[in-house]
Design a protein around this nucleic acid. Structure first.
Length: 183
DNA sequence: CCCTGATTCGC
DNA sequence: GCGAATCAGG
């Protein structure tokens, strides 16, 4: 579907409302990705959004080079999952900036639900599942637990992911810690 | 990992 | 003009 005047207007509106590109894309309907939205936004030259004190001198463009994209064989997506599991967690609403006296009561906010935290800070591994260093292999989670200097030291030992040395649980944890540090 | 916008470039 | 792929950052 192309960009009709209506769709463009809606895009502009939502963008200025402060909605994220992906949210706008979802709003516009199927066939519209967040990339499409962003691309259009740029073409319309409204990337500025609502910036009060613009102190962003456009960060370094960076010498982008040879992204190289394989000539698309035009693979048909076919399977479009509109809203498979309706459940679309949206922890933090972008908080539409209230400008002047534009729209007012247009925030349904029916998504006021409770978020049950995992509360599981650490996995409990049954003794018969615990592994010593020598028992590790390619498919065991190598997340260390306990004090290496003590007897109660062992490895998680859960089935590890193909993508890493840890199980699902510990893999996520490891990533979060490293990524945030930004090296 | 999730997510955000920014940019490039084949189409 | 379009938007997927990619980059850069949170």
């Amino acid at each position: 579907m192309g960009w009709t005047d209506e769709r463009v207007e809606l895009l502009k509106k939502l963008w200025m409302e402060g909605l994220s590109a992906s949210q706008i894309a979802a709003e516009l309907g199927e066939g519209v990705t967040r990339n499409a939205v962003i691309g259009k936004v740029h073409r319309l030259k409204l990337s500025a959004r609502a910036k009060p004190t613009n102190t962003t001198p456009r960060a370094r463009p960076a010498p982008r080079q040879a992204p190289r994209r394989p000539a698309g064989p035009s693979a048909a997506p076919a399977a479009v999952s509109p809203m498979a599991s309706a459940a679309k967690p949206r922890p933090a609403m972008p908080r539409p900036q209230v400008m002047g006296a534009t729209a007012l009561a247009m925030t349904p906010d029916l998504e006021t639900e409770f978020y049950v935290a995992p509360a599981t800070n650490e996995l409990f591994i049954p003794e018969d599942k615990r592994l010593s260093l020598l028992q590790l292999n390619e498919h065991t989670c190598k997340w260390p637990i306990g004090d290496p200097l003590t007897k109660d030291f062992y490895f998680c030992g859960q089935h590890s992911l193909e993508t890493g040395p840890y199980c699902d649980f510990h893999s996520r944890r490891a990533y979060h810690q490293l990524d945030k540090k930004k090296r």
